[in-house]
Design a protein around this nucleic acid. Sequence first.
DNA 1: TCGCAACCGGGAACATTACCCTGGCATTTT
DNA 2: AAAATGCCAGGGTAATGTTCCCGGTTGCGA
Lengths: 216, 216
Amino acid sequence: MPDKINVLLVDDHAVVRAGYKAYLSLSEHIGQIYEAERGETACQLYSRQLPDVVVMDLSMPGLGGLESIRRLLGRHANCKILVFSIHNELVYVTRAIKAGAKGYITKSNAPETLITAVCTIAEGGTYVDPELAQQLAISSAVDQDETAKIKSLSPREFDIFCLLATGVSTREAAENLCLSYKTVGNHGTAIKEKLGVKTLSELALLASRHGIVKNA
Amino acid sequence: MPDKINVLLVDDHAVVRAGYKAYLSLSEHIGQIYEAERGETACQLYSRQLPDVVVMDLSMPGLGGLESIRRLLGRHANCKILVFSIHNELVYVTRAIKAGAKGYITKSNAPETLITAVCTIAEGGTYVDPELAQQLAISSAVDQDETAKIKSLSPREFDIFCLLATGVSTREAAENLCLSYKTVGNHGTAIKEKLGVKTLSELALLASRHGIVKNA
DNA sequence: TCGCAACCGGGAACATTACCCTGGCATTTT
DNA sequence: AAAATGCCAGGGTAATGTTCCCGGTTGCGA
């Protein structure tokens, strides 16, 4: 392990990078700080500078954060990546870890956590936001991602899912399918349960995300 | 105008604040930097410290950014607020300006822009991201249908619209805003009426279309 | 044949929403 | 000054939607 830890910051917002750079510089453990504003350049910079830790944001244009992680690891298998995201949803955590990230923290954490996580990972460890890790452990039975959840719907459920996703009311959907609104309601409940959402609105947004309803 | 500019940072993420604080400290024009993690505390801190400029994030729990701006200005009419948001949608810009903000920049801007904007506003000027300002000018002629309808929402309605659009239930939204669920329900009805949709799901999809909720 | 899972829907309890109406407050009009 | 308008918060009630629990049907594979 190096005396000082060299870090590569990957975030598409220059101001954000500037902020973290300034903050990290205050720590005596941090050495050089490199910056990249997207996955592609991060890859090149990594090859040239071989930093100890990569701190990466998830939401980026071009190849997103996740894909960037995969590419980076494809070329540099022992690259240590810390995801530093605003998202506290478990899906992101599991995907990031699955993609090969060594750690995951959110911007809700105390500032010092960033330093701690970077150090831990530089030493070869892993660091996942304790709160998220706990949630993860609890819901490990349900750790499939959204696509898998959608696939788990029965054929009929999927039909109804598609209809409800367009924003129609339960009653309208029932008329459309010549069913009792109770039936549609019951299916709806089962679908929401399977997909892990609480409201029909969330269901609609999820469907929109997956292109099941076109919403351009 | 003061020799050095004192700044109040309002953002719910401590790391984010730490980053900007560290970055701003590097500038010779910036003096004291205060921090608040939500609208309520921002109000109190402002009264005590009377900073020259308030740098405020928009997305915050409790009273959101927009409502915080209104409260702050309600008590301190000549308070200078710079909105510093991740959102580059025009709706937010117009809302923020209408609420009384003196400037609006996004996190996509170059780091120096933050300093520039803070200085400009401290001197009594205004600063709106040039790109957004241009779009604003162009699109003011082109605002058709849905966009117009969204604009027709009253300030409070827009707040509630944004919340409901994320898929939360009326009850959750009410708790988040510390309102009776009846009130939120009533507003919700009015909003759906104004936007010409029948269900909250449709509302969510509409908001997603307009980038008011991020759903990528 | 048995077990199982998908499917349809009834009934009751509960939650949410629609609709109407009051009241406060601020702005604008007369 | 007085009246009118518009926004905001919320109570009451009726309609509507949702959940949970249940029984029934069908089809399929062991």
